[in-house]
Simulated assay, not measured.
Amino acid sequence: MSLPKFAATRSFHTELKTRINQYFEESGRPMTGDSGLLLKAILLVGTMVALYVHLVFFTPAAAWALLECTLMGCVIAATGFNVMHDGAHGSFSRFPWLNKMAAYTLGVMGGSPYMWNSKHNLIHHTYTNIEGHDDDIDVKPWMRMTPDQPKHSLHRYQHFYFWALYCMLYITWIFAMDYQKYFTRQIGAIGLKPMNAGEHISFWGFKALNLVLFVVLPIYMVGFLPWLAGFFLSMAVAGFVLSMVFQLAHTVEDAAFPVPHPVTAKLEDEWAIHQVRTTANFATDNKVVSWLVGGLNFQIEHHLFPKISHVHYPAISKIVQQVCSEFDVTYNNYRHTRSAIASHVGFLRQMGRAA
């Protein structure tokens, strides 16, 4: 399968970059995160460590332990949104070593930083919502996420059962999908570049570390059944929260799913317009939501400028909206989280019932 080719015109993207660069020059602020983001990272990682230590080494009562496991799942997701995500894009800090440390939190939590960089930074951020290339919309055969995917009778009910399926994301990610990509050397239709010795060691080292921290040691300390209940609960909560935030950004009724020309593989839009058309924001006026999800409710700004930290998204979103208006590019924005969720459910219903 040939890689899609974007239209050669870049006037929209050029204008966006000019105005965004002007904003940072006039404000005198760096494009990376600030001290507030560092404090948030310390708070989130510290909370995760404290919960882990209390659950594993102090064995609270069952009801309290389940509550803490639920909170652990939320904190894992929040750490991914706020710390790992910016670190992986190199926007967490102006210090490269601090970006690497932030990105490596994913390894401790069970994922592979190498696979994430390939799947998310390189492929998803380039070929967003393009069937066969964007791995984020490939949930086959369990769900139909694009108009170009095959439809099965089961999909008619996907807007009912997706809640349970999303709970399985994190578990399948760290115990199956990373390994599938590693051994097949493939993400969707795109082959992975050869890994060097350090990348192989990093992959297996983080997998082993996560197994020891989240499987072996807890079973030894609290027993198999208590570990199984707590582990599944925390992973299910983390998986559901992660799934919902990322799905609200791209699989909603107003998002586009462009199809490359079958012969030339060309797309109608330039890359930046493609990113806006395939992406949606939600609850951008809600500071609590923005704080919790690491600015990923400003997904349009993130896709256009992934190397700019999310702490700047509320400010630059005004610039992006203005340029979109001038170029007659639709800026998808759901005012509330609930309206974005309703649109996602409506989209799943539509995909399940379409011919």
Rank of each mutant, 00 (worst) to 15 (best):
K140R: 13
R144H: 04
M145R: 02
T146P: 05
P147D: 11
P147N: 09
P147W: 03
P147E: 07
D148M: 13
D148V: 05
D148C: 09
D148E: 15
D148T: 12
Q149W: 02
Q149C: 00
Q149D: 06
P150H: 01
P150F: 03
P150L: 03
P150S: 02
K151F: 05
L154F: 09
L154N: 08
L154P: 06
H155K: 08
H155C: 04
H155S: 06
H155Q: 06
H155W: 03
H155V: 06
R156K: 15
Q158S: 07
H159T: 01
H159D: 08
H159F: 09
H159M: 05
Y161T: 10
Y161R: 07
F162H: 13
F162R: 03
W163S: 04
W163C: 02
A164H: 09
A164R: 07
A164K: 11
A164Y: 11
L165E: 13
Y166A: 15
Y166S: 15
C167W: 02
M168D: 08
M168W: 11
L169V: 14
Y170Q: 12
Y170P: 00
Y170D: 05
T172H: 11
W173K: 00
W173I: 01
I174Y: 01
F175Y: 14
A176T: 14
M177W: 11
Y179D: 05
Y179F: 14
Y179S: 10
Y179L: 12
K181Y: 14
Y182L: 09
Y182Q: 03
F183W: 14
R185M: 08
R185K: 12
Q186N: 11
Q186I: 05
I187F: 00
G188F: 01
G188W: 00
G188S: 06
A189Q: 12
I190G: 02
G191C: 03
G191Y: 03
K193F: 06
M195H: 08
M195V: 04
M195F: 13
